[in-house]
Amino acid sequence: MTYKLILNGKTLKGETTTEAVDAATAEKVFKQYANDNGVDGEWTYDDATKAFTVTE
């Protein structure tokens, strides 16, 4: 299944996707991606759209 990450960081904005077996796996991938790019903020998840959002 495809999951999307929407980044609303102070220095990094954009979107990326990942293929994962479930939302928990996608969340781990996205949190590592955000951490690697220096984005740390409030996380939300919308199951209807399979989209995670992180806002700094």
Rank of each mutant, 00 (worst) to 15 (best):
G9W: 06
T53S: 06
L12H: 13
A34M: 07
A20W: 02
E15N: 06
T25P: 00
E27A: 09
D46N: 09
N37L: 15
D46W: 03
K13D: 05
F30A: 00
K4A: 05
Y45W: 04
I6C: 06
L5C: 07
D22S: 07
E42T: 13
K28H: 08
A34P: 01
V21E: 12
Y3M: 02
V54W: 04
A26C: 02
T2R: 09
N37M: 15
L5R: 00
T25S: 13
E19D: 11
K4P: 02
I6N: 05
I6W: 05
K13T: 10
V21P: 15
E15D: 05
K10H: 13
Q32N: 08
Y3T: 02
A51Q: 14
A23Q: 11
E19G: 05
T18G: 03
T11S: 11
E15C: 13
D36K: 10
Q32M: 09
L5G: 02
V21A: 13
Y3S: 02
M1L: 13
E56W: 12
T2D: 05
K4R: 11
D46K: 03
V54Q: 00
T53D: 02
I6Q: 04
E27S: 06
G9S: 09
Q32C: 08
N8W: 11
V29C: 09
F52A: 01
A20G: 04
Y33W: 14
D47F: 09
L7G: 02
T17S: 11
G38E: 06
E42S: 11
A24H: 09
Y45V: 01
A34E: 00
L5D: 03
N35Y: 15
E56D: 09
T16D: 03
K50I: 02
K31E: 04
A26H: 00
E27C: 10
T55N: 09
T55Y: 08
K10L: 15
A20R: 02
T25R: 06
I6F: 11
T11D: 10
V21L: 13
K10G: 08
V39E: 02
D36E: 13
K28C: 09
D46G: 02
M1P: 08
V29F: 15
T16N: 05
F52M: 01
G14F: 14
T17P: 02
L5Y: 02
A34I: 06
T17I: 09
N8Y: 11
A34Q: 01
A48C: 08
D46F: 03
A34G: 03
T11F: 14
Q32W: 05
E42M: 12
K10P: 12
G14E: 10
G14I: 15
A20K: 02
L7D: 01
D40I: 14
G41E: 01
L7S: 03
N8C: 10
W43Q: 01
T49Y: 06
N8F: 10
K50W: 05
N8M: 11
D47Y: 08
Y45K: 01
N35P: 01
E15F: 12
W43P: 00
D47C: 07
K13M: 08
D47M: 07
V29S: 06
N8A: 08
E19Q: 14
K31N: 04
A48E: 13
E27Y: 15
K31F: 06
K4I: 13
A23P: 10
K31Y: 05
D46E: 06
K31I: 07
K13E: 06
K31M: 09
A51C: 15
E27F: 15
D47G: 08
K4V: 11
